[in-house]
Design a binder for these strands. Structure first.
Lengths: 139, 139
DNA sequence: ACAGCAATGAAAACCGTTTTCAATCGAACG
DNA sequence: CGTTCGATTGAAAACGGTTTTCATTGCTGT
């Protein structure tokens, strides 16, 4: 089997070294993290990956749908490797960043209906719920 | 009637010159606009308002709940003076920026319920639907 | 008038992200 | 092996939106 050189992989994930490193770091399935956090983390772990490459890898992975992107209220982009590849929304803890994935078929239906009422052709929609998870709830 | 000097106004809106200018420009009830757009617009109209003041005014007005803030996918903050002061969501046209306000009591209920299921104490939630309005739908 | 504090705005700092560009890597081919 | 050539990498610089700094201006109450 000839080794793949670029994104023509059967699977589309983790082709370049940076992408593999990022995916590995993200594999923990933890909270949403920013590119810079990720970079610091990789650096700390001895992984020699440049910040630029982290950004590029995240961008590529996000484009490929391998990771989910979330903008924090301050405008920073954060990333997470989600369990489901289906369309879903998040419950995000403002304190520790952990996220719970939720699907909401009823919501999706409602969105389509409202859009139709106002004669909008829907491109996309986002729903994010932020609060404190059980663990962080006790200030 | 003594003139008000600062935000201790009965109403909380448009106390400083910059705030008044911004509110006036936003009054058109049109699309969501960025701080810079607003600044250019005011400058064009002969209103001598500095960019810094526009930012400050928007921040104050947003804090006071006088205007709604929306982050574009690129991370830029855009503002709009909404018709309703009640909690609501938006249908936003990606082409012209126009927005339709929608209330969704059923959604609010659903959010609370989902949060409860996962033992989250909800702080806030956002739902934005983006697409093309009827006028812009024809490419 | 005058003191004092809020508002203003130009310029500089900030900060996350993207771009540039030269160096490096590595598969393919001879 | 050695060369070629496109892809990858990363340091540094550019970028763009936003915030901060700080000196100036303008009101307000005395």
């Amino acid at each position: 089997m000839t080794r793949v050189r670029n994104g023509h992989d059967a699977h589309g994930a983790g082709v370049t070294r940076a992408q593999r490193a990022v995916l590995a770091a993200l594999a923990a399935e933890g909270p949403f993290v920013s590119a810079q956090d990720l970079h610091a983390q990789l650096r700390g772990a001895g992984e020699g990956v440049g910040l630029t490459s982290v950004y590029r890898a995240l961008q590529a992975l996000a484009d490929a749908g391998e990771v989910d992107v979330l903008r924090t209220p301050s405008g920073e982009a954060t990333y997470r490797r989600c369990g489901s590849d289906r369309h879903h929304h998040h419950l995000v803890c403002t304190s520790c960043g952990t996220a719970v994935e939720v699907e909401a078929p009823a919501l999706e239906r409602w969105v389509r209906q409202v859009a139709a009422t106002h004669e909008f052709a829907v491109d996309s929609h986002t729903l994010e719920i932020s609060g404190r998870c059980r663990t962080c709830a006790r200030d």
